[in-house]
Design a protein around this nucleic acid. Structure first.
Lengths: 241, 241
DNA sequence: CAGTGGTCTAGACCACTGT
DNA sequence: CAGTGGTCTAGACCACTGC
């Protein structure tokens, strides 16, 4: 057990160490981590203690167990993202599957607020994507995305139509950048001249705005995103207790 | 271990049994449940198995452990309710604490949809509360609340100003009805003549609408609620991974 | 079949709470 | 101080996966 040896419980120190292995990329999504008996031996603890540490990481969504196969680093699925709650508005036709298209890929200087969110010097250039999401024949949302050039340089030479439908696996494949978590903030605004025209909402109509800051396993901010969507297509549900 | 003895793991059967003790009121919020050694003996299992069952209920927010004191049935706090994300709009003055007032308490026949949600015969009468929530000098939201008369009869003779600021503890004290969980659905609408006038929003302005169905420990629907709030004061945040 | 995670036990010892 | 939950151990056996 390296590093600090304060009087934290062993399973927590163990958890922290396993987390750093994930963050550093030593353990990578898709391949099994060492089995419980091996971990118990490596860390000189009982197998029950290993299980407990693994439990906490499974709970946090970082690991995934599969009986008989092993324990794996999980790729975040973002199932609970707010932007998944835009629904099809024209239900007369058949249910449509969502589709997304990158409209443009440029490099520019984002606002000071965005630089700050991404931990960049104010005025630094940044990769800027615009993306349209549709459901059936109607536009549901428009994304504006900013990425730091130093980590995402490989994206500069890629033309919009070459982007995949899912961006996060694409980031991983092209730039080796893994998204681990994000914070989203929802507000409601009214459409103005600044609202992305692709949405086709009249001025004054309510628009749902979602701001997202996504981070890597080590907590570094990797992506800043703003999404606008027609409020009429938005329906969000939570269970509480 | 009463009831079914299928091939579920013991800790799950144990969990189910403890859950039914909570649902039936045999274990009540505020007083400690039997200690782990006693439970282990009662159920004829090892203490580790008891701990595991308790763990799941703690995770689900139904029990609460307190080292050295005991394990208790938890009163739900509804910290993550959507309606807690209406914020003060006039931040020039001092930060204000939220305040809520019951405006009216009547008995009437709610819409068919509401009867269905509450598992009532269509056309059954129901208790109907209207409530105003303010933050500082501004109205943040208006609630319309429906409660089945058979369980909440004691509320009929209570005049609006006698209601407490927190309704759920009030339900518990007056009617012995405990709220265990709820489902909330958020949509965005535009203000019309039907929008509660207390909100002071102009026609056409965006309004956040939250629908809530709250249930008891046994899953019975106990309260149906609709909340309207000025969208400009709404800011909702989630962490995802 | 060997290897993995899942369940369960019985017990030791620690840390915190309230009297 | 006695009583509670919190940590940790070492081992047995089961259930599932993939070869």
């Amino acid at each position: 057990m390296p590093t600090v040896d304060s009087r934290l419980p062993r399973y927590q120190r163990l958890r922290d160490d396993m987390l750093s292995r994930i963050a550093s990329g030593a353990w990578v999504p898709g391949v099994a981590i060492p089995n419980e008996a091996q971990l118990a031996e490596q860390y000189h603890v009982a197998i029950g203690t290993v299980r407990r540490a693994v439990d906490t990481l499974v709970n946090d969504g970082l690991l995934e167990r599969s009986q008989g196969r092993g324990t794996f680093v999980r790729r975040p699925s973002f199932d609970s993202s707010l932007v998944r709650f835009f629904r099809q508005i024209d239900t007369s036709g058949p249910p449509a599957s969502p589709c997304s298209t990158v409209l443009s890929n440029t490099v520019n200087k984002p606002s000071d607020a965005i630089c700050e969110a991404l931990d960049l010097e104010t005025g630094s250039p940044s990769i800027h994507l615009r993306r349209l999401r549709t459901l059936g024949n109607t536009a549901v949302s428009v994304d504006e995305i900013w990425l730091p050039v130093n980590r995402f340089a490989a994206l500069r030479d890629i033309s919009p139509h070459e982007f995949g439908s899912l961006l996060y696996p694409f980031y991983e494949a092209q730039c080796g950048q893994l998204i681990a978590s994000a914070r989203e903030t929802l507000t409601v605004v009214t459409a103005t001249a600044d609202t992305p025209g692709e949405l086709n909402v009249p001025d004054g109509a309510p628009v749902v705005h979602v701001e997202r800051l996504a981070r890597g396993y080590d907590g570094t901010p990797l992506e800043y995103r703003r999404t606008w969507g027609n409020a009429a297509t938005f329906r969000y549900q939570v269970d509480i207790n």
